[in-house]
Amino acid sequence: MVNCKRCKDKPVYNRLCKSCFLRYFEKKVRKTIREFKLIEKNDKILVACSGGKDSTSVLYLLKKIFSKRKDLVIEAIAIDEGIKEYRDKNLKFLKKFCEKEDINLYIYSFKKEFKIELDAIIKDEKPCSICGVLRRKLLNQMAKKLNATKLVTGHNLDDECQSILMNQFRRDVKTSARLGPKTGILVDKGFVQRIKPFYLMLEKEVAIYAFLKGFMQQLNECPYEKVSYRADIRDMINNFEQKYPGTKNSTITSFLEILPVLKKEYKNKGNLKHCKECGEPCSQDICQGCKIIQKLLRKT
């Protein structure tokens, strides 16, 4: 058997043993935060948590990295979309986790805030796009309400690769301009800055970190994930990565080279408005979230 390339212990991934892998992972996340200036002095950081491996790991690691920074506040926020079996289980785990780690957790639900539940309305619709729009809307609204200056997501390198290709295939370059370790194109007080500390970490690496830290017990896949366009793109990229190792890293590295140009290009295109219904920043008179809610409420 081939031993760890750093200390000769038993390897768990890519010729690194458990302790060398954890050191590698945490060091790379620290570097990502530093290099892209994701966290600044006096930030009030809200971590968007699903109870899954990515967001639980990012919450845990930020707490660990910044435990001595008295100027920073780190709290967690979760959205209950109303997906039985899946979200229920994950939120149960998350509540326990936050209690153990002494982290404030805020939970908001589609049912209470929008008067709808995903399971009840999903039959004829595209579940992931509806869920994504509504979840982003509620997260931004509540992050502002809680005076957060940064909204952290557990998005990893695989997620970003998928988004880049999805936008490319749909000829939606503007949406790609919003990507990156710090999302968005325009600075507006209506947006809470989103940041992705796991931007350079592979999904498999995050899973290994979560497994080694004991956050993988509740792992289960969203029942609607299988029917999404993203799932097809994900499978395609994974097959390509197996055949041509390094594909994912190359996609992100080259995207980061063109991202500043994209952000500059789209900064002055299109007017930023505020939704007449809810006041959220958007590109039309009514935001996409309010349009979806109105449509769904008409159906019920």
Binding site: P11, V12, K53, Y86, L219, E221
Partner: peptide, 29 residues
């Protein structure tokens, strides 16, 4: 892949009495 509840890399040689578990890394957010 975990063998007897311990994570292993792909070169690991498995014995007949080992308990091998394969876990998907994919989870919807």
């Amino acid at each position: 892949v975990s063998v007897n509840n311990k994570l292993v890399d792909i070169n690991y040689k498995v014995k007949q009495e080992d308990k091998v578990e394969i876990l998907s890394v994919i989870s919807g957010g």
